[in-house]
């Protein structure tokens, strides 16, 4: 095992430990027993097929969105705009889906996915363009584009598209839904987990292959590490930045598949519930490694559903604090490990 890998494992486990200690302290301060709460969480999630299914269901969009972000982050593009990109994409995806499901049948799924993907990618075009042509930081533009996206979707939905007195689009036909995991194994009975989960895993493996086994991945990572040096080595830096941003933003739209084709059958305002931001934490925790993202997204899925499971003991919002502490402690612990274990800096 290389020293670098050891350091990674060390920092991930240390930061999880830090988070658990900090959250436990918080729980003790407010007069709760942390052991009971962690115990309930674990038995509720891992003790029942339903709980596990729900955790997988919550993890699925985080994996997908995290993969899109990983592509951007690998190229050192801080895309804070996933929330906006995925809402635009999912909105268009559902619009295409319920309008064409009569004509295309099951084939509406790839068509709608393609439409959503392209829209999200185009939404990422503006920050990418500004970054390349004007040198404007993508951080600030993507934050602005988030607000514009949400207001735009809100406007289009409420003024023109929404089903009367709701904030959602029309439902797709029952025949074009993606099968649920409970259709295959009765273990997951009642949970919303669906085949999108396997699709997310496949996508992760594919992205891993691209990142670490192809020339494209090598170029993306080299641009991320040192754009100037990459340019001198003949890498077309701007092209890499543009395509990483577009495809990364496009991938985030696939979050909609889980919700639209796997769960509700329509797009609804607020469906994303800050997935675009939580996925940033998921991706960072995994250090942009696609396989790692599967695990960190699963951890967040467990916390997400686990929050509901322990809600009678402590408000489920404690998990939001837990998630934020995970990201801050991985950042801090990572640096400390770098300084004292790898002797960098």
């Amino acid at each position: 095992m290389s020293r670098k890998l050891k350091a990674n494992i060390l920092s991930i486990s240390l930061s999880l430990l830090t988070t658990i200690i900090l959250t436990s302290l918080l729980l003790i301060i407010i007069g709760k027993n942390p052991i009971t709460i962690y115990g309930t969480l674990i038995s509720e999630v891992f003790g029942t097929g339903y709980g596990l299914g729900q955790a997988l269901f919550k993890a699925t969009p985080l994996i997908i969105c995290g993969l899109g972000l990983a592509l951007c982050f690998q190229a050192s593009l801080f895309n804070i705009g996933a929330e906006g990109q995925l809402n635009i994409g999912a909105f268009v995806m559902s619009f295409v889906a319920y309008n064409l499901d009569d004509y295309l049948g099951i084939m509406v799924i790839p068509v709608a996915i393609a439409a959503g993907f392209v829209m999200s990618a185009l939404w990422g075009l503006i920050p990418a363009f500004l970054k390349i042509k004007r040198g404007v930081s993508e951080v600030i533009t993507t934050i602005m584009m988030n607000f514009i996206a949400l207001a735009l979707v809100n406007y289009l939905l409420i003024e023109f598209i929404a089903v009367k007195s709701t904030v959602r689009t029309e439902r797709i036909l029952d025949t074009v839904f993606i099968p649920k995991l409970s259709d295959i194994s009765s273990v997951f009975q009642g949970s919303s987990a669906n085949m999108t989960f396997f699709f997310a895993i496949l996508l992760a493996v594919f992205m891993y292959f691209i990142f670490y086994k192809t020339r494209y991945g090598y170029e993306i990572r080299s641009v991320g590490l040192n754009p100037t040096a990459s340019r001198y080595l003949g890498v077309k830096t701007n092209r890499i930045i543009l395509w990483s941003f577009l495809i990364g933003a496009g991938i985030t739209s696939l979050v909609g598949v889980n919700f639209i084709f796997g769960y509700k059958g329509y797009y609804e305002l607020g469906f994303s519930n800050n997935i675009g931001f939580t996925a940033i934490a998921v991706t960072l925790l995994a250090k942009n490694n696609p396989i790692g993202i599967i695990f960190t997204a699963f951890l967040f899925g467990v916390l997400d559903y686990g929050g509901l499971a322990v809600n009678t003991l402590v408000p489920k919002e404690i998990m939001l604090v837990f998630q934020a502490l995970v990201i801050l402690s991985i950042l801090a612990v990572d640096k400390v490990v770098k300084i004292y274990y790898l002797k960098e800096d």
Binding site: A281, V321, Q323
Partner: peptide, 16 residues
């Protein structure tokens, strides 16, 4: 990245 983490932490803490 730290800023993103802080936003999540503070919004989450207030909600909790």
């Amino acid at each position: 990245v730290t800023g993103v983490g802080f936003n999540l932490l503070m919004a989450g803490t207030a909600k909790f």
